[in-house]
């Protein structure tokens, strides 16, 4: 379990990174927290010939409010986001979700940008980014462009980023009036990759009617999955047990084409998705009727 030979760069400025990335293309891998990449290299499943360490770059680890968005630098440690009061206030879904991401030791090293760019279908943050409609600021020597969450995730461990691009930061919309969020997942042991996970964001008007729903699912497809059909069931409706059940059934049956593996068969994943979407929606609607608090 030793990695193959690789070239190691430790740049100190983002321009150097962009130059190295442009130069080496898909031969190069940026090293953020290393919590997925380094084990993959030790198993010799990943064999980048060039490793570009981002840990010496200043300015990629900030959490800041910009207008109605919370900007999180790509190198921000997951643990820092989890512990941030500001995050808890304006994007509580992130605070609620992060304790489910692996273990504290891993979150101390693991970064928000690393997890999103890695796009593991079993990762929590991509599903949360989908549910919240995050925007991704992607930079290269060619300039910076913004990619919407719906377009960012592009299949198994794949994103809309080109080989010469680097994720610089991510913008999460600040919780709006009438918006409630909730997260839950089922894993074999706490901190394991989830068998199924659900991130929910609902906009509920003053009469209790659900204006809009976004449901992000994890571990049920090639990447994070937006449960569009389940959301359609909810849109414009006043929530009831029956409505929630029917949305959950759509999520389990129509929104996903889940993989089967040694921990959960296709049928079990569909079943768990239905159960978990139902429970998470119920929790979110309960928060809405409590005035948005848990």
């Amino acid at each position: 379990m030793k990695p193959p030979v690789f070239e190691y760069h430790a740049p100190t400025h983002i321009d150097e990174v962009l130059e190295l990335v442009a130069q080496h293309g898909d031969e190069a891998k940026p090293l953020a927290g290393g919590q997925s990449l380094v084990p993959a290299m030790n198993f010799r499943l990943a064999r980048p010939s060039v490793l570009i360490d981002l840990n010496g770059i200043d300015g990629l680890g900030a959490i800041a409010l910009e207008g109605d968005e919370l900007r999180i630098g790509a190198m921000t440690r997951q643990r820092a986001v989890e512990r941030s009061d500001l995050v808890g206030e304006v994007t509580p879904l992130l605070s609620e979700t992060l304790p489910f991401v692996a273990h504290p030791q891993i979150r101390n090293r693991g970064t928000v940008g690393g997890s999103l760019a890695h796009a593991d279908p079993a990762a929590e943050l991509p599903a949360v980014a989908l549910a919240l409609g995050a925007r991704f600021f992607v930079r290269s020597q060619r300039g910076t462009r913004v990619v919407e969450a719906d377009a960012f995730f592009d299949g198994l461990f794949s994103t809309a980023m080109e080989d010469d691009e680097l994720l610089e930061n991510v913008a999460f919309p600040v919780l709006a009036d009438g918006q409630v969020t909730a997260f839950s997942e089922i894993s074999r042991r706490h901190g394991d990759y989830a068998l199924v996970g659900v991130a929910v964001s609902l906009s509920v008007d003053s009469s209790g009617c659900c204006e809009r729903a976004r449901i992000g699912l994890l571990s049920v497809g090639d990447g994070p999955v937006l449960a569009v059909r389940a959301a359609e069931v909810l849109a414009g409706e006043v929530p009831s047990d029956e409505l929630i059940r029917s949305a959950a059934a759509r999520a389990g049956h129509d929104d996903i084409d889940p993989p089967g593996d040694i921990h959960a068969s296709v049928d079990y994943r569909r079943h768990l998705t239905e159960v978990l979407v139902r429970r998470t929606l119920a929790a979110a609607f309960a928060r809405a009727s409590n005035g948005g608090s848990a």
Partner: peptide, 16 residues
């Protein structure tokens, strides 16, 4: 063997 790492061969931890 499909469960040939500690990601898939699940040992009980202190919390379990």
């Amino acid at each position: 063997l499909l469960s040939a790492s500690f990601m898939d061969y699940l040992l009980p931890t202190a919390t379990d």
